[in-house]
Design a binder for these strands. Structure first.
Lengths: 168, 168
DNA sequence: AAATATTTTCAAAATATTTTGATAGTTCAA
DNA sequence: TTGAACTATCAAAATATTTTGAAAATATTT
């Protein structure tokens, strides 16, 4: 397997898996491409490498920047914008955890918060059971949220710090 | 807010959020419906409640059973199959963690495993950098995988522990 | 300011996913 | 074995998402 073949492999695999990670195939491929590129790339480089349109590249690169795992780089004397991926795997993982928390967990908490305004007959067993289910969901979701929050915040704490330094 | 309104609220919210959780809106709604139903429901009950077709209910209920968060219940003297959701929120969370690990993490590990068979010139800095990136991804993914595995395993032993206590 | 280079936008087209509903298949009681 | 009562399947239709590409907007140079 040559270097280029290996890179193609990763890009393809990443793309295929992208959907199960909740991002589009193309976005995952753009990320993989930038991740394995030793140099930053322009929109045109990416268009060429993945055979996709300009608009598509633009959109996906901006999404990746929203996720905080791709940066714009300006080169002195160059008019074009260059892009590069965050290479620190730990940081990528943290950014993804952060974004997913925001996108998947927080909206649920908000939705559950809204629902709990029930002022129905509390002696009705069905009402009681429902209220309990909502209460449990809330507890579980906010627990998960807090745990993630701690992990993300505690980049410097002794436990996670030393535990994950191995992978930096 | 009456009980039924509150339930409708939850079902709608769950459905909307479903997409960000990587399941279809309908699947999330079927799950929410069963979760807040104090009794088990037939295919027809679900069709009626969510105004969706038989095939759709069938497919989604089976997917939910694959996820391990909905069960088929057979009632003596009844030919129809009834369905009910797991009500223990912690168990639901564990099942989801388990499934997502299987669907999102393990395929990545497999993909990375396949790639590392590079026998290219190791003195080339680009090759070296690529190999390092892959290596880091592998470490990170397998570490995450193992951590999740531990949490799930610990929980299962707790579950079976208390399960067997019932028959002491 | 005009010309040129580059990025962003967005409506239409392409693609992918979900839903339907009619039919095929299964189970069970008589 | 038959037929009633279900459940599963799957091709076609409906919906949703992604991609394109050309035009608009923005930025840079002359």
């Amino acid at each position: 397997m040559t270097l280029d073949e290996a890179k193609q492999h990763l890009i393809q695999a990443w793309g295929t898996l992208g959907s199960s990670w909740g991002v589009s195939r193309t976005m995952a491929q753009v990320h993989a491409l930038l991740l394995v590129s030793p140099v930053s790339m322009t929109t045109e480089d990416i268009m060429e490498a993945l055979q996709i349109s300009r608009g598509n590249v633009n959109m996906n690169v901006r999404d990746l920047m929203d996720w905080g795992i791709v940066r714009k780089v300006l080169k002195p004397g160059e008019r074009k914008e260059f892009f590069e991926a965050e290479k620190d795997v730990w940081k990528i993982g943290m950014q993804i955890a952060k974004e997913r928390k925001k996108r998947e967990l927080e909206p649920i908490l908000r939705a559950l918060e809204q629902i709990s305004i029930i002022e129905a007959d509390i002696t009705d067993p069905d009402v009681k059971q429902f209220a309990e289910t909502i209460e449990n969901l809330k507890k579980f979701a906010s627990n998960t949220n807090n745990t993630l929050e701690s992990i993300i915040k505690a980049d410097e704490s002794w436990f996670w710090g030393s535990f994950f330094k191995l992978f930096k």
